[in-house]
Computed example of a mutant assay.
Amino acid sequence: MILILVLWSIIFILVSVMLTLSIIINKKMMIDREKSSPFECGFDPQNSSRMPFSMRFFIITLIFLIFDVEIALLLPMNILSINFTVGVSIILFVIILLVGVLYEWKEGALSWIK
């Protein structure tokens, strides 16, 4: 019983020393609210959520989601046995996506400099 008590006290002392050392040698400043916030996107979470947002970020997000869904739809098609119908549907799907990318490129949604 005494051995268990001694072991627990040693563990408690070690944990306390490690926590104290980590607080002392921590490089983060309490003043730096932006780095300590969970979202490092440049918005202050305490302010209003109705701040203006750049449409370029929104469009890039939509383009990413479209091509993410494209991968999710193309992978099962490739796993199936490749026959004429599956091959034509894959080619048609890729052509539609290629036309969409070319349209976005022509409209300037993919360029950051205007």
Rank of each mutant, 00 (worst) to 15 (best):
M1C: 06
I2Q: 15
I4D: 15
I4G: 08
I4Q: 15
I4F: 11
I4Y: 06
L5D: 11
L5R: 15
V6N: 12
W8T: 15
W8M: 12
I11G: 08
I13P: 14
L14C: 14
S16W: 05
V17R: 07
L21K: 04
I24M: 03
I25S: 06
I31G: 09
D32C: 01
D32L: 00
D32H: 03
E34C: 05
K35P: 01
K35C: 03
S36R: 13
P38Q: 08
P38A: 08
P38N: 07
F39C: 00
F43P: 05
D44K: 07
P45H: 01
Q46I: 02
N47T: 11
S48G: 12
S49W: 05
M51G: 10
P52M: 04
F53C: 14
F53Y: 14
S54C: 09
R56G: 05
R56V: 00
R56D: 04
F57Y: 14
I59S: 14
I59K: 13
I60R: 11
L62Q: 09
I63F: 07
F64H: 15
F67K: 07
D68K: 02
V69Q: 07
E70P: 04
I71T: 10
L73D: 11
L75F: 02
L75T: 09
L75W: 07
N78F: 14
I79S: 11
I79P: 01
I79L: 04
L80T: 09
S81Q: 12
S81M: 05
I82F: 02
N83F: 03
V88K: 06
S89E: 05
L92Y: 03
L92F: 02
F93K: 11
I95H: 03
I96P: 06
L97P: 03
G100K: 01
V101C: 07
Y103E: 15
Y103W: 15
E104Q: 05
W105D: 03
K106D: 08
E107V: 03
A109R: 12
A109H: 14
A109Y: 09
L110N: 02
S111F: 04
W112R: 15
W112V: 06
K114D: 04
K114L: 02
